[in-house]
Design a binder for these strands. Sequence first.
DNA 1: AAGTGGACCAACCGCCACTTT
DNA 2: TAAAGTGGCGGTTGGTCCACT
Length: 222
Amino acid sequence: MESLGVRKGGWTREEDTLLRKCVEKYGEEKWHLVPLRAGLNRCRKSCRLRWFNYLKPNIKRGKFASDEVDLMIRLHKLLGNRWSLIAGRLPGRTANDVKNYWHHHRFKKMVPIQEKWKDKAQTNSENTVIKPKPCKLFRGFTLKTASVDASKTQGSTSSPLATLLQPNQDIMWWESLLADHTNGDQELIACLLTEESASAVNTNGGGNHDFPFETGLWDIFN
DNA sequence: AAGTGGACCAACCGCCACTTT
DNA sequence: TAAAGTGGCGGTTGGTCCACT
């Protein structure tokens, strides 16, 4: 249907300008109307892709820093090929960037870069990557707490969550899940938690039990 | 200078979930 | 309730650049 007579291939500077003006005027929505509004002979998907992967402000270009790669690998271990979720935790990076990088590096550079994760990788092969299934809950849905000893979630060793939580306080169902799924990776947990939620966890002695991180992270739990 | 291969990037395609009619 | 429309995502492909031989 929409492919009839629709232009494909690389974008010209003029097309970029038209698309940018259109999105700035109407916003990042109703992509089916964008080609018409912008006067572009492109399909809706092409327009959307061009905007999110190239034209959108604050997109970071250039090589991935070592800490970005580090985080990417750990997030991939947790989330699997959920590139959009991974990119969401790497400011300025797009899902396409992350995906491209991963496909070109995972077999060659992952081992040297991730030497310090070698042991974990050996015990948890790629086949054991958590494959999250979409899980939907109503916004504002409040869950009851489970009274769990935080120290027990990671055995006798100090739990990363234990540093965020007071010992023996009530922890939430998602907190123990997060600890399990991240394999006790404190840095990763800190990344997954929003700043507000991390401080809330620190200061809230279990008083407020709202789910404290972004709704997209519902997806990481089965 | 020409050929080759790897790294990187941009874009398309097909599928799926959700929304609207 | 079903069909059509739409948004979004992951897989894949193809082009360009650059270092190396």
